[in-house]
């Protein structure tokens, strides 16, 4: 199977200049490959650096060293060496990211929040609207909310709008930061379906899933990440056995 994402030598430390210049090492020399149709779950205790790694894979955080190789428009590019305008392009069509919280834009309605990335990626407006409506319907966002700006929505509703926004484009690589954190069982099931459908379309997924049920339903393997310890990979099935 083709490799969709290959991170190597990733090293990240934070230097907190406002707090006496404390240096916090997060991870060192991380290597991660994700194949098409595979879902890798970043796993480790709270504070281990899962979110930092996920944000680094989106070039939201700037690792100190390493490469993140992705195939963009038929060419292999290193996300960390790319110029800012290139990163914008790569994010527009190649790497999607669903954050934990929706960053709401004042006065833009939920439906338009969802269609925006698709239209920016060249999808005709009518098609994007149809797809957004389907996603919002599946994620149980009532139709009367579609034209309203999500600022006043509940946390779970905002997160579902965020998920719809992430799944409307078929990004070859999709990064998910706790997509089911504040969802009820029915919506968790929908998100599991969306992830599995994306996998069957060959999308490579890296995610953080705290919910064990969700993790077992979607993850092909776990990628262990812990403070100052060597990272290693454990097959999800083996881990499930240990836990049960």
């Amino acid at each position: 199977m083709t490799i969709r994402l290959h991170a190597k030598g990733l090293t990240k430390t934070f230097t907190l200049h406002t707090q006496g210049g404390i240096v916090l090492p997060v991870f060192d020399d991380v290597e991660l490959t994700v194949k098409a149709g595979e879902c890798v779950c970043l796993h480790g205790p709270s504070g281990a650096g899962k979110s930092t790694l996920l944000r680094s894979l989106y070039a939201n955080y700037k690792p100190d060293a390493g490469q993140i190789l992705v195939k963009h428009l038929g060419q292999t590019v290193d996300l960390l060496a790319a110029e800012p305008w290139e990163v914008v392009e790569i994010r527009r069509s190649t790497i999607g990211y669903v954050s934990q919280f929706l960053r709401v834009i004042p006065r833009v309605g939920a439906l338009n929040v969802v269609t925006e990335p698709a239209i920016a990626n060249g999808m005709p407006a009518a098609e994007a609207t149809a797809k957004a409506q389907e996603l919002l319907m599946r994620l149980h966002i009532p139709q009367r909310l579609w034209s309203l700006a999500p600022a006043t929505f509940s946390g779970g509703e905002q997160q579902r709008v965020n998920i719809a926004r992430g799944f409307i484009v078929d990004y070859p690589v999709l990064l998910l930061d706790e997509p089911t954190a504040s969802l009820d069982a029915a919506n968790r099931a929908t998100v599991v379906d969306l992830i599995n459908e994306a996998k069957s379309r060959g999308i490579a997924i890296v995610g953080i899933f705290h919910d064990e049920e969700v993790r077992e339903a979607v993850a092909d393997r776990l990628f262990e990440i812990g403070n100052q310890t060597a990272t290693r990979t454990v097959p999800a099935v083996a881990l499930a056995e240990v836990l049960s």
């Binding site: 490469q67 190789l69 060419q75 590019v77 290139e86």
Partner: peptide, 12 residues
């Protein structure tokens, strides 16, 4: 996927 294949698209 190797680093040697890296090539940058022409910027605007």
């Amino acid at each position: 996927m190797t680093a040697s294949a890296l090539r940058k698209p022409a910027p605007k």
